[in-house]
């Protein structure tokens, strides 16, 4: 329907407007109406979060829906940290963001680096047992985290590394994200063999081929994975809640829970402060998403369409 209508209209030989013009317009209007409606459902909670974060406590429970805070108090974003420091001295904005970034960046680099090596090994070399191991790797996606959680906790306890960032950072060097290996393997498989063979004839070794030929070629997928991995580690809650117990060492996700449990208990939950924290936690990932949305969406699509 749509294709016919548009081709007819763009054809200069058929200047006369085609008869199904009116239903076509109604149809288009209906489509946009539905799209806008869905868009509103998506965006309203975001707007409400930001709006709440700028309100005074007495604007919270008015029984009306006001999206524009009056007066707007950006100071909530500073005050929330003063409240936190009053309970746990040293729990400052800089410290908590630092913790979150420390965990996120180390885990992200470990993940990308190890996943690209493993994917390289799974895609460009022939060896016996390859498909079996790759199948096993994909099967691990099904294991619920809760099954491995108790034993993992016991391992780190045995190593004396509870309440450190170790459990959240360096295990990433062992390619803990099967999805990322899978995505990169798909990409590696699409690279023509001749490139490698030419380099081998020129006397390059595996490390050189990987670094100078493969990595530049898979740059788009590396970027996609970097973005996905940053988001996943920044948002991580299940890992830190298990291993980190000192409030000053909390990443943002735990700091939010800490605020919720210690300062927002009782009759009047301090939603303006909690939404300010939620906005702070969301802003970097959202910004990254807007900047790299192409990579984000493509990264996911490789898995879905080629899977």
């Amino acid at each position: 329907m749509t294709t016919e209508a548009t081709t007819l209209r763009s054809d200069p030989l058929l200047q006369e407007p085609p008869p199904p013009q009116r239903p076509f317009q109604i149809r288009q209007a209906l489509i946009y109406l539905l799209l806008i409606l869905c868009g509103a459902i998506v965006i309203v909670p975001f707007l409400w979060m930001i709006s709440t974060s700028l309100k005074t406590p007495d604007q919270l429970f008015t029984g009306r829906v006001d999206f524009i805070p009056n007066p707007a108090v950006p100071r909530n974003y500073i005050d929330v940290w003063e409240r936190l420091s009053s309970v746990a001295p040293g729990m400052s904005f800089a410290r908590i963001i630092g913790n979150t970034l420390f965990i996120t960046i180390l885990a992200m680099f470990g993940e990308i680096f190890s996943a690209s090596l493993v994917a390289y090994g799974f895609s460009r070399f022939e060896w016996r047992g390859r498909n079996l191991l790759f199948g096993l790797m994909l099967a691990t996606v099904m294991i619920p985290g809760i099954v491995t959680r108790v034993p993992s906790f016991l391992i780190w306890r045995e190593l004396g590394l509870l309440n450190t960032y170790d459990p959240l950072t360096w295990p990433s060097l062992f390619a803990w994200g099967p999805l990322y290996v899978f995505l990169m393997r798909q990409f590696f498989l699409s690279i023509p063999r001749e490139l490698e063979e030419a380099a081998i004839i020129d006397g390059a070794n595996v490390a050189q081929i990987y670094w100078h030929i493969m990595l530049p070629l898979i740059r788009p997928v590396l970027l996609a994975i970097a973005v996905l991995s940053f988001q996943a580690n920044w948002n991580n809650f299940q890992g830190p809640i298990l291993y980190i117990s000192t409030p000053q060492m909390f990443p943002l996700a735990l700091a939010m829970r800490f605020f919720d449990q210690s300062l927002s208990r009782g009759e009047a939950p301090q939603w303006h402060y909690m939404m300010a924290m939620a906005t702070m936690m969301t802003a970097p990932v959202l910004l990254l998403y807007f900047l790299a949305q192409k990579q984000f969406i493509e990264g996911l699509n490789i898995g879905a369409v080629k899977g």
Partner: peptide, 25 residues
């Protein structure tokens, strides 16, 4: 050499798999 390189490259995952999946499960 080809097979040896391939296996060497996936070793990090194999170690992680043995410790964080097989052993924990």
């Amino acid at each position: 050499r080809e097979a040896a390189t391939g296996r060497a490259l996936v070793t990090p995952w194999v170690i992680g798999f043995l410790v964080f999946n097989v052993f924990t499960i």
